[in-house]
Amino acid sequence: MDPFDARLLIVTGKGGVGRSAAAAAFALAAARQSKRVLAVAMTDSSGLAAHLGRTSLTYKPKQIGPYLFGLAIDRARALDEYLKLQLGIGTRAPLLPIARSLEAMAETVPGIRDVITIGKVLFEVQSEEWDLVVADGPPTGQIMSYLRAPRTVAGLIPGGRARRQADTMAETLASADSALAMVTLAEELPVTETLEALAELQAENPIRVSGIWANRVIEPLGVSETSLEEVASLAARNAGLLHRGLYENQRRWRKHLPDHGRLPFLFGVHGPARVASLLADEIVT
């Protein structure tokens, strides 16, 4: 599966599966192929920033490596931009109170937070500045609500500029230029959640799924039963048993997944930037 056959790649995954690491790895891998890449943090930006070797990301795209730029969505500023640029509400209008009201409502009203966030991502895609926009997206449990947001909002608004904007957003997401990568672990809960989201995605088709990636995959130990039982070192035997047990379990859960890519478990490597860089090696090869 080619993760870079699109101009927008949204990465999703249940909390704790390594979604931000994978998103950073996709961005790095594409930048290494001399694509001009923008990595966008759609929700909490600390994870993506760390995996890109930064302490934070800014709302204004900033270069963070060769061909690689980073951006963190600040909802209040995205909203301001949305009102000014997308809806053509003049700068003389009292934007601050509206922005604050919408901020308050974005906490409660389904669709608003999501459409503003996804709107900013699509705005960057449409800007033609980037060969690829990689978005570190919301967790799997929320991804449908984000992807549905443009249609939800379009359904709420009878017509006018905001309606046209929402329609355009939905069209861009559904086009061949946009793709979703789903990251999971080969464990019961994340696999179940991924399969549930896949079923919803197939039913509603807001975006095409370009790949499913199993993260922290353990490869087979490659040692016979007898040599494992006969090894004198208790530590070596226990490490072998744990490895084999994890491999067997993962294999069982991976069988539930459709065709998927594999990202390896990185023994002893935990520095976020190093993790992303090693995963990027795996994606390219």
Partner: peptide, 8 residues
């Protein structure tokens, strides 16, 4: 066993 040594 080299594989088990590597694994440990």
């Amino acid at each position: 066993d080299p594989k088990l040594a590597f694994n440990l």
